[in-house]
Design a binder for these strands. Structure first.
Length: 563
RNA sequence: UGGGGUGUAGCCAAGCGGUAAGGCACGGGACUUUGACUCCCGCAUUCCCAGGUUCGAAUCCUGGCACCCCAGCCA
């Protein structure tokens, strides 16, 4: 994302558009839209669609992308979601300018068009019950039968439709159907419903309507009314395209957009359906839609993912019609790549082990200079306090180290980053448990800053925090939400939820400057990973941190091989 | 044994009749005051399978096979 002039990789949709432009189709314009239903929060799958639609608009001269809420089902939708969706799209870095639309804005026009269809004998009012509808529809292999109401007169249809709108009937009593073909091999064309009665309050139109248009009928017309040129949607709508085209062919709409379908995103070790995400929230498996383990935009944001990283990820995975599952490592790679460039390095000890530097003067403190980024001096530096008692990571000490372990062990010498070389002289253990509770080390005053004048080298460099100056706070570590790569493939997907997907460390010791971290501020805790100050649980002067992603860890591999 | 789609490496993905890009992952090495970053090197004689057309096929033709989607008054 640093190169603004980077040419996006080709994909079949961009190829179609390039070809259309060459033919001067749509007078050379490109107009897309992102059409979420406001019935839940957005997830990375939506991010793929957002990046595609807004991206295509942005990379073509004069290209535009609308934000349109597909709000035709009042029972499931809510303003809470529209607000959250707008915030997410904006946070991802996209702008619909003044083109915010709602399908509900078109209800009157949609009604008029339906009247038109009825007058033209292309739609009728049906009184079949839902169960009867199902029977008449036939099956995948057997054609359907025509409803007895199919040849109701235009006058009667018109009257009934008017009375439906007027609220004279109960839900389910009547329904408007397109008159297409009950024997079509495509079930979507067997006289699909286009209007149903719902005596529900709509989040925008209130109680003005008691009949609501169906998706297939609404979506294509909304696209046409907005002058959309390319209506990009996911694969499951491929079968609906003939219906999309049919509706537009019957009506005097301003234009006829081209529907193009692509495969939705699947990520391993997580689930992506709104229904399942909803269950995770409602049944308490996670703390909310914005739980840092969730693949939602708000969840990833809270975890510390950046908009640039998510955009980069969406670019890398490509756009095709293949049914695929993307490896989580691709996402993590995008995040690390962005954060490596932008995050300041600081020190934090997650699981503290007390170290007393026996030959360092008591009650003495010095400040050591530590740059914020090893490769970017322009990011500046800060002073970190050093004193006689410090904490190091428990993992950085082993009493009986395996080969190639170049951290601290009895008699070994290591560097404390930006400070001194220390040597482990004595190991103090708990008399009861035998656990190592303290290390006694000596330091070499000659090695201040981290280099020895005599040229001797150490293999390991450890991060540390001065005990008296440590800012103690909470740090949360996250792991994958599921224990198997494709939970959807499991009979009971909830049986493979990872019980250890979150670990809360209450006693982490952070360098003092971190007490001033702002909500959503991101850092690299050296040698541990990238962390983000939680915007929800942090309080003034007491930020708590979420681990976004670990650093790549080649020691973990060596360690595994040794064992 | 209805219709619509899709099959290129462990995971993604370019390719569109001229002799298999790239990314992730993985393996090896260099550098290193983060076992990070960075940098080198390696990683499909073969494109779901079988035939055919062609001087030449992942690309064209024929026939199989596998997987995904569709029977809401959801989107």
């Amino acid at each position: 994302m640093t190169e603004t002039d980077k040419i996006p990789p080709p994909n079949f949709i961009r190829n179609i558009i390039r070809e259309d432009l060459k033919q001067n189709k749509n007078n050379g314009s490109v107009h897309t839209r992102f059409p979420p239903e406001p019935n839940g929060y957005l997830h990375v799958g939506h991010a793929k669609s957002i990046c595609l639609n807004f991206g295509i608009a942005a990379e073509n001269k004069g290209g535009l992308c609308n934000l349109r809420f597909d709000d035709t089902n009042p029972e499931k939708e809510d303003v809470e979601y529209t607000k959250a969706i707008m915030a997410d799209v904006r946070w991802l870095g996209f702008d619909w300018e003044d083109r915010l639309y709602y399908a509900s804005d078109y209800f009157e026009q949609l009604y008029d068009y339906a009247v038109q269809l009825i007058k033209d004998g292309k739609a009728y009012i049906d009184s079949l019950s839902a169960e009867q509808m199902r029977e008449y529809r036939g099956t995948l292999t057997k054609p359907g039968r025509e409803s007895p109401d199919r040849n109701r007169s235009v006058e009667e249809n018109l009257d009934l439709f008017r009375r439906m709108r007027a609220g004279e009937f109960d839900e389910g009593e009547y329904l408007v159907r397109a008159k297409i073909d009950m024997t079509s091999p495509n079930i979507n064309m067997r006289d699909p419903a286009i209007y149903r009665i719902k005596k529900a309050n709509h989040h925008r139109t209130g109680d003005r309507w008691c009949i609501y248009p169906m998706y297939d009928y609404t979506h294509c017309i909304s696209d046409a009314l907005e002058g959309i040129t390319h209506s990009i949607c996911t694969l499951e709508f491929e079968d609906h395209r003939p219906l999309y085209d049919w509706c537009l062919d019957q009506l005097p709409v301003p234009c006829h957009p081209q529907q193009i379908e692509f495969a939705r995103l699947n990520l391993n070790y997580t689930v992506m359906s709104k229904r399942k995400l909803n269950e995770l929230v409602n049944e308490g498996y996670v703390t909310g839609w914005d739980d840092p383990r969730m693949p939602t935009i708000v969840g990833m944001r809270r975890r510390g993912y950046t908009p640039a990283a998510i955009r980069d990820f969406c670019e890398r995975i490509g756009v095709t019609k293949n049914d695929t599952v993307i490896d989580m490592s691709v996402l993590e790679n995008s995040v690390r790549e962005d954060l490596d460039e932008t995050a300041r390095r600081v020190m934090a000890v997650l699981r503290p082990l007390r170290v007393v530097i026996t030959n360092y003067p008591e009650n003495s403190t010095e400040e050591l200079d530590a740059p914020y980024h090893p490769n970017k001096p322009e990011m500046g530096s800060r002073r970190v306090p050093f004193s006689r008692v410090i904490y190091i990571e428990q993992d950085d000490f082993m009493e009986n180290p395996p080969k190639k372990f170049f951290r601290l062990s009895p008699g070994a010498e290591v560097r404390l980053r930006y400070a001194y070389f220390i040597k482990c002289e004595e190991v103090i253990k708990d008399k009861q448990t035998g656990a190592v509770i303290e290390l006694r080390c000596s330091y070499d005053p000659q090695t201040k800053g981290g280099n020895a004048p005599d040229g001797r080298k150490v293999k390991g460099t450890l991060h540390w925090v001065s005990a008296d100056h440590a800012f103690k706070s909470e740090v949360r570590l996250f792991d994958r939400l599921f224990t198997v790569p494709v939970p959807d493939g499991e009979g009971d997907w909830k049986s493979v939820i990872n019980p250890g997907s979150v670990e809360v460390l209450k006693d982490a010791c952070l360098e003092p400057g971190l007490a001033g971290a702002k909500p959503e501020e991101r850092f690299q805790f050296e040698r541990l990973g990238y962390f983000c100050a939680d915007h929800k649980d942090s309080t003034q002067g007491k930020p708590v941190f979420n681990r976004t992603v670990t650093l790549r860890d080649s020691w973990a591999k060596v360690d595994k091989q040794v064992k």
